[in-house]
Amino acid sequence: MGAGAMKKAFTLIEMMVAVLLGSIIVMVTAGVLSSSIKAWEAIQIRVSENYNRRTVLDLLKRQSSSLFIRKFTVSPGGNTPLNTSNGSQLPEGVFYFRGDGQSINFLSTVSFLSDFPGKVAVRYYVVQGQPEDDGSFLDLENSRIDYDPEMDFESQVGDANLEGGLYLYLEEKNLFLSEINNDNGDTDLGGGPTPAVTGLDGNGTEVGDPEMSGEVIDTHTMSLIGPLRYFGFRYRIPGTHGVNEADDESNWSEFWDLDAGDGYPTAIEFTFVFENGASEDTATEDLPTIRMVIPVYDEENLKRGKRDEKRF
């Protein structure tokens, strides 16, 4: 009888307490593990986002730093700008440098979407939303502009008003450009062969060979990053900026056309506003924003002080 009493099983109360304690321990442990997994996933998403942003910014930076600079035989602002890109040298729809608030076209020496060597006509623009499987992104709201050469540039400029769910697209046209010798007395900066250019020089004499025109070899398009709340460009107006001078809107232009005769902007500014899963009610100003300024190294922009003084 005594031995039997010693071997009795757990009572109901003991079992309940044990199960309760066991449950609490399992729940706490599971909660901690679950939070750890969520934190790990959040880190992975954030690292991936940062990596993507970094890559896109580097791409933008490298491509815009590798602008193929058009030479002028008459100083920008002079009476007769030479070598208009509306001549027969560049294929239709390709520009040395032309941009507005949400799209930009320029000629670069760096191609990212193909291995084809040589010049590439680059175009960045935004598309609102993502296309259906069988749809085209060009059916969606976008900032891509097919400029009409017959129309005034400023009348075709977009008003940079696309916001929310934006995807940045890169379009590259690989070009084959004919070459000629520039014998009009301009100083070659040693930047390699000059592409064929046609037009009238300062004396009204035709230069270049209109028969030798550029050719588009291939076109590639790729969506780079999104969704973004906003993406925009600004173009810095040439001029000296003192250390104590505040940077304000008057230093920037919302659009730029090289053919207008003002030369290149001294810098291009990219603005990214990331959505980061924020609700639509969150104001654009409250979202994380990155502004990156990329200097443009045009020969004209590297003259110290006044533009007609000694060169850099």
């Binding site: 954030r46 000296t240 990156m292 200097p295």
Partner: peptide, 26 residues
């Protein structure tokens, strides 16, 4: 990580601004 990444952007941008300022400075 997020703060660090932003700091890298700001630092790079500061260098670009310095280049831009020096390109035109007397």
């Amino acid at each position: 990580i997020s703060n660090y990444e932003r700091a890298v952007f700001y630092t790079e941008n500061a260098l670009h601004w310095t280049f831009l300022d020096l390109n035109h400075a007397e």
